[in-house]
Amino acid sequence: MELIIEDWGMVEGQPIPVKRFSLKNNQGMQLQVTNYGCIVTSLEVPAKDGQLADVVLGYENLDKYLGGHPFFGAIAGRYANRIKDGRYELDGEVFQLETNELPTSQHLHGGSKGFDKYVWNYAIEQQDDAIYLHFSRVSPDGESGYGGNLLVTHSIGLDNHNQVHYNFKATTDKSTVVNLVNHSYYNLAGHDSGSIDGHELQLHCDYYTPVDQQSIPTGEILSVKGTGLDFTQPTLIATNRAMMADGGIDHNLIVNRKVTEGEYALAAELYHPESGRVMTVLTTQPAVQFYNGFKLSNKPWFGRNGYKYEACAGMCLETQHYPDSPNQAHFPSVRLNPGQVFEEKTIHRFTLR
Rank of each mutant, 00 (worst) to 15 (best):
155 S>W: 05
124 I>V: 15
60 E>N: 12
154 H>P: 07
103 P>E: 11
325 S>H: 07
218 T>V: 00
35 N>E: 04
208 Y>I: 05
67 G>F: 14
294 F>W: 12
188 L>C: 00
131 I>P: 01
101 E>P: 11
5 I>G: 08
137 R>K: 07
22 S>D: 01
232 T>K: 03
326 P>E: 00
266 L>H: 13
250 D>E: 07
112 S>F: 03
291 Y>C: 04
255 V>F: 11
16 I>A: 10
231 F>K: 02
265 A>R: 00
221 I>D: 13
24 K>H: 08
203 L>K: 08
176 T>N: 00
7 D>I: 15
98 E>S: 13
269 E>V: 15
84 K>L: 00
129 D>F: 09
14 Q>K: 04
72 F>I: 05
73 G>P: 06
64 K>P: 08
42 S>T: 07
203 L>T: 06
161 H>A: 14
202 Q>A: 14
224 V>Y: 07
76 A>N: 08
66 L>Y: 04
289 Q>C: 11
53 A>D: 01
31 L>G: 01
179 N>A: 12
246 D>N: 15
261 E>M: 13
273 P>K: 13
160 N>I: 02
140 P>Q: 00
268 A>E: 07
200 E>S: 15
333 S>E: 02
59 Y>K: 03
17 P>Y: 08
330 H>S: 06
219 G>D: 09
9 G>S: 09
351 T>I: 09
64 K>N: 14
352 L>C: 13
234 P>Q: 15
131 I>W: 00
227 T>D: 13
70 P>A: 10
288 V>M: 10
6 E>H: 14
310 E>A: 06
318 E>W: 04
